[in-house]
Design a protein around this nucleic acid. Structure first.
Length: 616
DNA sequence: ACTTTCACG
DNA sequence: ACGTACGTGAAAGTG
């Protein structure tokens, strides 16, 4: 038995790590003492739960002053028995550990998920901001420092330091935060100590945060978010099937593109297209004038700058406005192909499981506005103007990809919230909103270009933008956009008034806005104008979240694959695909303060790319 | 570690 | 008084 002690908030805590069965009596006594909620954590070989060779090494169970660090290689049965006891557990970022335990110990999400409190959810509901945004942060260390003991060690950072002293037997090199988890000796004192501390800290954090949540009246929202996390974890566990032979071909195609265009760039003295310094100086040497600068003061050579130099519009079509700069063109094409290969094709292949499924991590309660995000790989950010990357994700055999997305959900949510009579009437009348706006702003005989401006202003208003950004979006001058923006304000005065109301409340009360769901959204002192956007974005997210819960309640959860902000991607057997997606679309639809929130349902075909023009 | 860029809604 | 585009994840270069 390894026995360590550590003082947390002035109390001496015990960390026990049994090494043989005869040493488990103390653990049995610990379980029998009747704590209502126990801390739970696991230590694994890495982040990619579903990759081949992945293992869970330790499971820790404890309370506020005692931790039991259990080796999975010796005591898996004991751990499973403890987890199956009818009691609650508290985990920090439970979606991760629950999937580890489901996949590698066989205690399912369905069994354990409903019995878990997640301190990360509590923390997000209290203050969703990361540390660098001026918030409390969402990881265990900063939260424990605030609520439990500011001298408690940063167990993640502390272990990273230890990893750098340990040699990876496969490569012979010193470990990093990526491979240290796999190679650190399982009885290394720091590893055992920090493993134990994490459950002690999470239990104490729970005691503190649960009271705050209750006092803020957030118990119902917390319950909803906990339920949602389990459903999203079920989606992640299912994953999405990959078409591996297709990805290999795509990868080769993209590599060939990179090579071709890198060669062209090299002719102009740029031997690395990703070096902004090389690109900008070569362009200047060719006689181009670069005016925009980055925050760091360097000459800007991003897509927005390079496209006009290459005489290309946003759809990569020739504008015929000037002689295309061949270097700008080559850099754009080489970088795009390189990004698609690295971030998508390679990522798909590297992150898949042994059955060629991709289990991207779904963060259910992520952004400041609670928006969801998907990482490893970022499936919410695949190119949408070209089908080739999305074509890599396919439905299971015999099934097809289906999807339903909300139509103009943010404008509709804004209309419901601000109740501007003209905006409400426009939406209820069923005419195209941007047509309606263009007619009001420019007159009935508006042009196509004017409709585009009207649309850009609508977006600009939701985001809190001004004439400069709308001008940049539309390619017009700010002075040409300004009159249209005033006309927009006179047409929909309620939008501006609603924003002003939110801002003045935030200015004279607590610097935050509170949504209908009770979510507290803190505002930055010098960006109060973001209030409208936060409420709109957050409320739209809550609508999608509710839809996911409703779809599971209706028994259709097994079809869902991914949430994409205003859209749900799913799959169903070909014969019933139409019915399934229509029903999902109906479950997504709702009425929000008299405003219909409708969705459009579509059957894509064998791959996700088939919704974006992939040939059958 | 920070900056720059680029992919999405 | 005025105006401010919102929210993400990830790779590569740079120092």
């Amino acid at each position: 038995m390894i026995h360590l002690t550590h003082t947390i908030a002035g109390e001496v805590c015990d960390i026990f790590m049994p090494e043989r069965r005869s040493e488990l009596a103390g653990f049995d006594r610990f379980l029998a003492q009747g704590d209502k909620v126990l801390g739970l954590d696991s230590e694994t070989s890495g982040l990619n739960i579903y990759s081949p060779g992945y293992e869970v090494r330790l499971v820790q169970i404890g309370n506020g002053r005692e931790a039991w660090v259990l080796r999975v290689d010796l005591f898996a049965d004991v751990i499973v028995r403890a987890l199956r006891q009818p009691r609650m557990f508290v985990v920090h970022n439970a979606a991760f550990d629950l999937q580890v335990i489901d996949r590698h110990l066989g205690v399912t999400l369905e069994e354990l998920g409903p019995r878990v409190f997640d301190t990360r959810i509590f923390a997000h509901l209290i203050d969703p901001r990361q540390e660098h945004e001026g918030g409390a942060g969402l990881s265990l260390k900063p939260l424990s420092a605030i609520h439990v003991d500011d001298s408690a060690p940063d167990t993640q950072a502390g272990l990273n330091a230890v990893f750098r002293t340990i040699r990876n037997p496969e490569t012979g090199k010193l470990c990093t935060k990526d491979d240290g988890w796999r190679h650190i000796p399982i009885d290394h004192e720091t590893y055992v100590r920090y493993a134990g501390l994490d459950v002690i800290l999470v239990t104490r954090l729970f005691d503190e945060l649960a009271v705050i949540i209750r006092d803020l009246g957030l118990n119902p929202l917390s319950k909803f978010e906990h339920h949602l996390q389990v459903l999203l974890a079920i989606m992640q566990r299912r994953g999405v099937l990959l078409d591996v032979p297709y990805i290999e071909r795509l990868k080769a195609e993209l590599e060939a593109d990179v090579e071709t265009f890198a060669k062209v760039a090299a002719r102009y003295g740029v031997d690395n297209v990703n070096s902004t310094a090389q690109v900008s100086s070569a362009l200047v040497a060719m006689g181009e004038t670069l005016t925009e600068t980055t925050d760091g003061g360097a000459l800007k050579v991003d897509k927005e700058v390079l496209m006009p130099l290459a005489d290309l519009d946003r759809d990569w079509e020739r504008i015929e406005a000037r002689k295309a700069n061949p270097l700008a063109d080559a850099v754009l094409r080489a970088k795009r192909a390189g990004k698609w290969r690295e971030s998508y094709a390679d990522a798909f292949l590297n992150l898949r499981d042994s059955s060629d499924r991709l289990h991207a991590s779904i963060g259910g309660l992520q952004a400041r506005t609670a928006r969801m995000s998907i990482s490893r790989p970022p499936l919410q950010q695949l190119p949408s103007g070209d089908w080739r990357v999305r074509r890599a994700l396919v439905a299971d055999p015999g099934q097809v990809i289906i999807a339903a997305d909300y139509a103009q959900v943010e404008m509709r949510v804004l209309a419901g919230l601000c109740q501007d009579p003209t905006l409400v009437e426009a939406i209820l009348s069923g005419t195209d909103l941007h047509d309606f706006t263009a007619a009001r702003v420019f007159g009935e005989g508006f042009t196509k270009q004017e409709r585009k401006v009207a649309k850009a202003i609508g977006f600009g208003k939701v985001y809190g933008g001004g004439a400069t950004t709308v001008a940049r979006q539309t390619g017009l001058q700010p002075e040409d956009v300004r009159p249209a923006m005033s006309a927009y304000d006179s047409t929909f005065p309620g939008i501006k008034r609603y924003g002003a109301k939110l801002q003045s409340r935030a200015q004279y009360g607590k610097r935050e806005v509170v949504t209908l769901s009770g979510r507290h959204l803190p505002l930055d002192r010098d960006r109060l104008y973001a209030a409208t956007n936060y409420v709109v974005q957050s409320t739209s997210r809550d609508l999608l979240a509710q839809a996911i819960v409703d779809i599971f309640d209706a028994g259709l959860g097994d079809h869902l694959l991914l949430p994409v902000h205003d859209e749900l991607v799913a799959q169903a057997p070909a014969a019933e695909a139409r019915d399934v997606i229509d029903e999902i679309g109906r479950l997504m639809a709702s009425t929000f303060y008299t405003i219909p929130i409708a969705s459009e349902a579509e059957v894509y075909g064998p791959s996700w790319g088939h919704g974006y023009g992939a040939p059958s």
